[in-house]
Design a protein around this nucleic acid. Structure first.
Length: 321
RNA sequence: GCCCUCGUAACUCAUCGGUAGAGUGCUGGUUUGAAAAGCCAGAUGAGUUGGUUCAAUUCCAACCGAGGGCA
């Protein structure tokens, strides 16, 4: 049985993923699933740089291409990688039903990996009360607690990362020991990454932030605030929203906010790049033409080239030490 | 022209006789239900030229540069 073919378009923030994805979708009769851990929320539009699509019923459409996993989750709740996988799988099935090719487009590397490499997360839903309690402890305390509950997991976790420690304790308390996470490629994937010169990326980030300010990013934050989004949540959402929260509370000036944000977005882009670097399956392209060329080699409709593409149909998960 | 203050990492500032630290930035890495989060590591320096001293970033002088005051 042959696996479902999907195309993945990724790259750092401000590299032009959304537009490339739409162009590719038009060219190859595809539909887009956003893999962006912030665009998935409702109302985070300007700050996350969502494309300016329209809702047609329950479907978000931009340039007549359907987009899934955009603006569908309440920003008051946390959307986890596991939630994303469920949503995305449904979208893929839906797209397939209509005979189109799914294109995953986004910069949240972990979510994309979790989806296409089939991570099976332990069946332990977040325990809010427990998390709240554990949040009061520092990393050292959390680590020694985990060591008692699950020494194996304690052996391979980052002992200074409270987020991970809390999750590990949550799992340990629920099911005793952290299971090994199975991973297997469940789709036939073509990875495309947008290659962009660091200086260009830097200037894109600057320009884009300036544009967002003009487009009313501050107004958007005020609206979110009026909808009772907590400051804590603003902080958790990161980047734009985190710094906007400081500004709206009068803790910083507009100019300082903008400067700090430019740095923060740049750091974020670098972290994304570090993540992608490990994935040797990514085909780095510089423009639409290169992307189209690679996709033509991948899709079955180009029969004459099938032999060349055979090697792409199987791949291994990137080695992690 | 005279007087004062100041010149330490890319930036803001510590050290004030025993060969320099922090925060931010920079570079790299990590990441298994918060991933735009969280975390780890690394690189880089005393304006210039003299003098005093066993020893000068630290004291003195001149010069250069910045800021302020008086004229």
């Amino acid at each position: 049985m042959s696996k479902q073919q999907i195309i993945i378009i990724t790259g750092p923030t401000a590299s032009g993923k959304s537009e490339l994805a739409v162009a590719v979708a038009k060219h190859f009769n595809g539909e887009i699933i956003s893999a962006d851990s912030r665009q998935i929320y409702r109302g985070l539009d300007i700050g996350t740089g969502k494309v300016e699509g329209r809702w047609k019923g329950k479907i978000f459409v931009y340039k007549s291409i359907r987009h899934y996993c955009i603006g569908i989750f309440s920003p008051k709740k946390q959307c986890s990688a596991a939630d994303f996988i469920r949503l995305a799988k449904k979208a893929i099935a839906d797209i397939r039903k209509r005979g189109k090719i799914p294109i995953i487009a986004g910069g949240t590397g972990f979510w994309i990996d979790a989806l296409v490499y089939g991570f099976s997360f332990p069946e332990v839903p977040p325990n809010k009360a427990l998390r709240k309690k554990l949040a009061k402890k520092d990393a050292e305390k959390l680590f020694s607690l985990l060591k008692q509950l699950d020494p194996v997991r304690a052996g391979n976790i980052d002992p200074k990362n409270p987020h991970r420690l809390i999750r590990a304790i949550e799992i340990a308390k629920a099911i005793g020991r952290s299971p090994r996470i199975e991973k297997h490629a469940i789709y036939d994937t073509l990875w495309i990454g947008i290659s962009i010169h660091p200086e260009t990326l830097k200037s894109n980030i600057k320009k884009r932030l300036a544009a967002r300010m003009r487009e009313g990013i501050i107004q958007e934050a005020k609206t979110l605030r009026r909808q009772k989004l907590s400051w804590k949540r603003f902080y958790e959402l990161g980047l734009e929203y985190r710094f906007l929260a400081d500004f709206l509370r009068g803790e910083t000036t507009k100019k300082a906010m903008r400067e700090k944000l430019e740095y923060a977005i740049w750091h974020y882009a670098k972290r994304q790049l570090t993540w992608f670097k490990r994935n040797k399956n990514i085909n780095w392209v510089q423009n639409l033409r290169e992307a189209i060329h690679i996709i033509q080699l991948f899709l079955p409709s180009t029969d004459s080239l099938k032999n060349i593409t055979a090697c792409r149909h199987s791949f291994s998960f990137p080695q992690t030490k």
